[in-house]
Design a protein around this nucleic acid. Structure first.
Length: 799
RNA sequence: GCCGGCAUGGCGGAAUUGGCAGACGCGACAGACUCAAAAUCUGUUUUCAGUGAUGGAGUGUGGGUUCGAGUCCCACUGCCGGCACCA
């Protein structure tokens, strides 16, 4: 067959589309399969080869599932709110809606040209009011259930651009746009109380099929630790400083305390602190430091003693000094710590620098040289003395703490609550109203969607205000509760919002009564297989799992966990081995490859590059190799004969087995290698039976759907190959009657021998010895041991 | 610093999970076709010694377990990813 991909690829894309074979059918009798890919951000740059790789995994599985008789839901959509579009809108003075529509149109065209079998009838766009209506609806549900709260925090602020910056946009303490110094500014922020779901997110991992490394990243991100909260009284005051510790059993070793510079008790007791001026100076210096500086420059511990204020160790009754130091963070624990310099390296360094006592309470190490953080017998600790097991001494101390009423056992998480607002235009408006009488009031559900107002000017406002704050007609409203004049919240949601529930919308994308019909969710959910980038396994995965757990708790969805299985693809690097980037000029445009070699070649190459989960560099020559392979595949139509070719039977059965299992394990590269190998065999034999070739086409179809569909037509096949039955194999035919195994002498391979598959031990050993080279090596030696592993190896141990 | 991953020919990568290392592809070399080139086809291709049969070495480094190690254990080196003064 003449392989003219420019003709056949559009031809079949149109035929498949016209026949609607990729449409998912709600409530079909067939078993369901929901395959999900991370929906793209429709940037102006268009599709990247990374997108192709990310989607190819679910594409191949879904195509195989359809052939296996499943009702497949494989949707696509666009996560279209976000900064790049907004920045481009500002620069070109074009409405982001216009830009988004152009980009989505472009993306869709590109996706289709690669032949992805998405159900385009279910395409969603997070910026469509009919979609973000439900993002706002879920937000209001969270609000209703007390999971939305407001708090003051320090944000990165650029005084020059007058803009609040994300951490990513203020790396190194410089504004990404104008490169001036970023300062920390206190600001009121909306938070989602994700920490309330920390345990559910942690223990939910036991019930899902994620690779261990992904689970571990989530576990570390959640960062659950157990310990105790202890209250240290302030000497001469009726107040305590609350601390959190994972080692309450070292309480007898406490020789000082440290508070974060932002700790509110410092201000509260300002009048009795005698060096308040110095402290304020230090605090100001800390405020200028960015998160980056504070965490990167870990070498030198800075700090200052608070004069005129001391704390009492609640178990010993002894007074200890209090310091302020920025190695203690306000954002973790209680913002204050008890310092045990003998057994914590940071406390040790601080104590050495400030000449503070060090009391050892765990035997071991040399605390003159460094803190001892290992295990050992408890000493200098009254009732804890003699304990050698950390777990027991901690448990005993927690008991004592609670008995003495000085604190309680508790749990802490590294995960922080989710800061949920941005001062930007291109995002979902937060549907809340500030009423001078009633406080914060929710926009009534029936008023959703709360639409983004049409504006001319998208630039962020002065002093970090959202552009929406300038639109009086948007801001001014009446309070839904009291009917009085009120003002709308003008911040918008972060980009993570729309992507936290999109997979639910795919189940019922056009519903205007609910985010999705419960019966449809029951039919489709959970997602059977979700593939995406490693960079999203912490934030996006946790955020969306959080929303889903919440929706489950309020009875809106049918499962606690949204994704039954999650995998991640490796990056495609430039041909120089570096990350692809415009500045390096090593970016490959997938559409160029489609144009030059065809979509099938691109698809086969990307799946053949190497282990799916690993990073691999692009190689133009290898692309040509895949094109050469498909050319040779096309040539198979010239070798067709009537009836099966017996020499190929075993090979075809083996290939069916291997390709079938390799796809399930994401070993696409070896599946393709097996098909290439079989192709070489077919050319050696010089002929192939018609139905044998159709089986070959079926195996290749998920990878190269266009050429195989065309060949199927040439062969006179009925219907579409794409939805024909996946071939089955006969296990007996995949096993050879006679096999070749290695023969070793003292573990070194000295020859091979052909033996029957189920050759008995004695016979195999005799056959091995009969090999002339082996016989020669055995001559005159004492045979110590003979090893025969059926189907694997023969080994003679001699002396 | 902590957590995780990886390391195999000139290159991308295989190896039934402890059993013939280098499948498959790229590149290179030789040959065929061609006036010639490209394309295509046929061979060879881990490395060292040897015309050869063959023999030695070989999966980042050093050690260990085993009849047998790319695979398991210990120590180290180098790269990649994530988190980072987390109390």
């Amino acid at each position: 067959m003449n392989y003219d991909f420019k003709k056949i690829e559009p031809k079949w894309q149109k035929k498949w589309s016209d026949a609607g074979i990729f449409k998912a059918v709600d409530f079909s009798e067939k078993p369901k399969f929901y395959g999900l890919v991370e929906f793209p951000y429709p940037s102006g740059a268009g599709m990247h080869v990374g997108h192709i790789k990310a989607y190819s995994s679910i594409e191949v599985i879904s195509r195989k599932r359809r052939m296996q008789g499943y009702n497949v839901l494989m949707p696509i959509g666009f996560d279209a709110f976000g900064l790049p579009t907004e920045n481009y809108a500002v620069k070109t003075n074009t409405h982001p809606r216009v830009i988004t529509d152009i980009n989505i149109e472009k993306f869709t065209r590109q996706l289709k040209s690669v032949g992805f079998s998405f159900d385009y009838d279910r395409t969603i766009d997070t910026t469509d009011p009919e979609y973000y209506k439900w993002t706002q609806w879920i937000f209001l549900k969270l609000f209703e259930h007390g999971l939305v709260f407001r708090d003051t925090t320090l944000v990165n602020y650029c005084p020059h651009c007058k803009v609040v910056l994300a951490n990513e946009d203020s790396q190194g303490g410089k504004c990404d746009i104008c490169h001036s110094d970023v300062i920390q500014l206190p600001k009121d922020v909306w938070y989602l109380r994700i920490t309330k779901y920390a345990d559910k997110l942690l223990y939910g991992l036991d019930d899902v099929d994620y690779p261990e490394n992904i689970k571990l990243q989530e576990v570390n991100w959640i960062g659950r630790s157990t310990g105790a909260f202890v209250n240290f009284p302030i000497a001469g005051a009726d107040e305590t400083i609350r601390i959190y510790t994972t080692r309450p059993d070292t309480l007898f070793g406490v020789t000082f305390m440290v508070m974060a510079p932002e700790h509110p008790l410092i201000d509260k007791y300002a009048d009795r602190i005698t060096n308040m001026d110095q402290i304020n100076e230090y605090r100001e210096a800390c405020a200028k430091k960015t998160e980056f500086e504070r965490t990167q420059l870990v070498k030198d511990k800075t700090g200052l003693k608070i004069e005129g204020m001391r704390a009492v160790n609640p178990v010993t009754g002894k007074e200890v000094p209090i310091f302020v130091a920025d190695y203690v963070m306000m954002g973790y624990g209680t913002g204050a710590i008890m310092a045990v310099p003998a057994h914590d390296q940071r406390d040790w360094e601080f104590a050495k620098k400030f000449g503070i006592d060090i009391i050892q309470v765990i035997k071991g190490g040399d605390i003159e040289k460094e803190a001892y953080t290992g295990d050992g017998e408890m000493i200098n600790s009254e009732y804890l003395n003699g304990y050698t097991n950390k777990k027991d001494s901690i448990a005993r101390m927690c008991e004592e703490i609670e008995k003495q009423g000085i604190g309680e056992a508790g749990v802490q998480y590294k995960m922080k609550d989710w800061a949920f607002n941005r001062q930007r235009y291109w995002g979902e408006p937060i549907p809340l109203i500030h009423c001078p009488k009633c406080g914060v009031v929710a926009v009534p559900y029936e008023e959703l969607p709360l639409r983004l107002p049409e504006v001319e000017d998208f630039e962020p406002g002065q002093d970090g205000q959202s552009p929406l704050a300038r639109i009086d007609s948007f801001v001014n409203c009446t309070c839904p509760k009291c009917g009085g004049a009120a003002k709308r919240e003008t911040d918008t949601m972060p980009q993570w919002a729309g992507s936290s529930w999109y997979f639910l919308r795919y189940c019922d994308p056009h519903n205007d009564k609910a985010f999705a019909d419960y019966k449809k969710l029951e039919y489709w959910m959970p997602v059977d297989w979700y593939n995406g980038g490693m960079e999203h396994v912490t934030r996006h995965l946790l955020y969306s799992r959080f929303w889903h757990h919440f929706l489950y708790d309020i009875g809106e969805v049918n499962t606690p966990e949204p994704y039954a299985k999650r995998t991640a693809q490796g990056m495609i690097l430039g041909s120089d081995g570096d990350k692809m980037s415009k500045s390096k000029g090593n970016v490959v445009d997938p559409l160029d490859i489609v144009d030059q070699y065809g979509a099938d070649t691109l698809r086969v190459y990307i799946m053949f590059m190497g282990e799916y989960g690993a990073a691999a560099p692009w190689n133009d020559s290898s692309v040509k190799g895949c094109r050469r392979y498909l050319d040779r595949v096309a040539g198979l139509t010239d070798l067709v004969v009537d009836g099966d070719v017996p020499e190929l039977e075993a090979g075809i059965h083996k290939a069916i087995k291997k390709v079938s299992s390799d796809i399930e394990e994401q070993k696409y590269n070896t599946a393709i290698a097996a098909l290439m190998s079989l192709l070489n065999d077919i050319y050696k034999v010089g002929k192939i039976g018609r139905s044998q070739l159709i089986d070959y086409m079926k195996l290749l179809s998920p990878f190269a759907p266009h050429i195989t569909e065309e060949m199927y037509e040439v062969l006179g096949g009925e219907g579409f190959l794409t939805v024909s039955a996946w071939p089955s194999y006969d296990e007996a035919k995949t096993v050879d009657a006679e096999i070749e195994i290695g023969v070793q002498v003292n573990g070194k391979v000295r020859g091979t021998v052909r033996i029957p598959k189920d050759c008995p031990r004695d016979q195999a050993l005799a056959l091995g010895k009969a090999d002339p080279k082996v016989a020669q090596l055995l001559e005159g030696k004492t045979l110590v041991k003979e090893i025969y592993v059926p189907g694997r190896i023969l080994n003679y141990v001699v002396r």
